[in-house]
Nucleic acid binder design. Structure first.
Lengths: 111, 111
DNA sequence: TTGACATATTCCGATATAGGAATATAATAG
DNA sequence: CTATTATATTCCTATATCGGAATATGTCAA
C-alpha cells in the first residue's frame, strides 16, 4: 500500500507547502486562474494542477465565467484540521497558566 | 520531483491518519512502545515505524529506560499547524457573527 | 552464556505523487 | 472559420511512501 493520496482529505491536500501558498494568496477573493498565476509567479499548468487537488477535496470552489474559471477558498473544509489541532493548544498554553498562578502568588506575597 | 517527505514537517507527518491516531492514544502520558501497541491493537513494527516518523519531526520525544523506550507527545510541534489554520476560523464563524446581528435586529423589532 | 523480552530495521512491492514540457480543450472575437 | 485567449490534461521520470514479513539489535534475568 502507498501513502494516503493528496486528494483524500484536507490534511493531505494541505501538507504540500505550495498548496498552502495558493490558499494564502487567494484570501477571501474570487480569482481567475490567471490572477492566481500572476500573484504567485508560477507557470499556469502548475497552478491549475494544484487547484485541481484543492478542488477535489473541496478546499476551493470553481465557477465558470466565459472562458475563465473563478476560484474561491472554501475555508470550512479546513475545519477538521482546526478541530483536530485546537485541543492541543492547552499543552503549550499550560505553562502560561502555571505562570499566571506563580505571578498571582508573587502578588499576594508582595502585599 | 516527488511528494514532500512525511518527515519533512509536522504537516506531512500528521497527514497520515494512523499517525494522528498514535498521538491521540498517547494523550499526555509517557508510554512504552508496548503500551501503545496494546492500546492500538496494531503490530509492533508498524507502531515503531510511525513513532520513528513522529520522532524525526519532533512530534514525540523518546527516553530509554532499560530495554524500554518511553515516548511522550511533544505538542508544541503542532503549533505551526495551529497557527496556520486558526486565521481561517473567522470564515466559518463569520456567518454566526452575521447571524448574531440578524438576531439582534429581530429582537429590536420585537420590542 | 543463554534465553526471553522490548524495540528497531531491512527488504519487498504497489502506488502516488510533483514538476517540466508539450499538447488538448473550450470559448470568444473578428 | 480562424486566431487568440484561458485553462486543463497528458506524458514523463525520480522519489517516497505504507504495510507485511522477516530479521536484527539491545537489554535484562537466571
Amino acid at each position: 500500500m502507498a501513502r494516503t493520496p493528496t486528494t483524500h482529505d484536507p490534511f493531505n491536500a494541505v501538507a504540500e507547502p505550495k498548496r498552502r501558498q495558493v490558499l494564502a494568496v487567494m484570501g477571501t477573493e474570487e480569482l481567475s486562474v490567471n490572477e492566481i498565476v500572476e500573484r504567485l509567479g508560477w507557470n499556469q499548468p502548475s497552478v491549475s494542477k494544484h487547484l485541481g487537488v484543492l478542488k477535489q477535496v473541496g478546499l476551493v470552489s470553481e465557477r465558470r465565467v466565459g472562458r475563465q474559471r473563478m476560484y474561491r477558498v472554501n475555508a470550512e473544509r479546513l475545519r477538521p484540521i482546526f478541530d483536530w489541532v485546537t485541543p492541543f493548544e492547552q499543552f503549550w498554553n499550560e505553562r502560561f497558566d502555571r505562570l499566571d498562578i506563580v505571578l498571582q502568588e508573587m502578588q499576594k506575597k508582595d502585599k
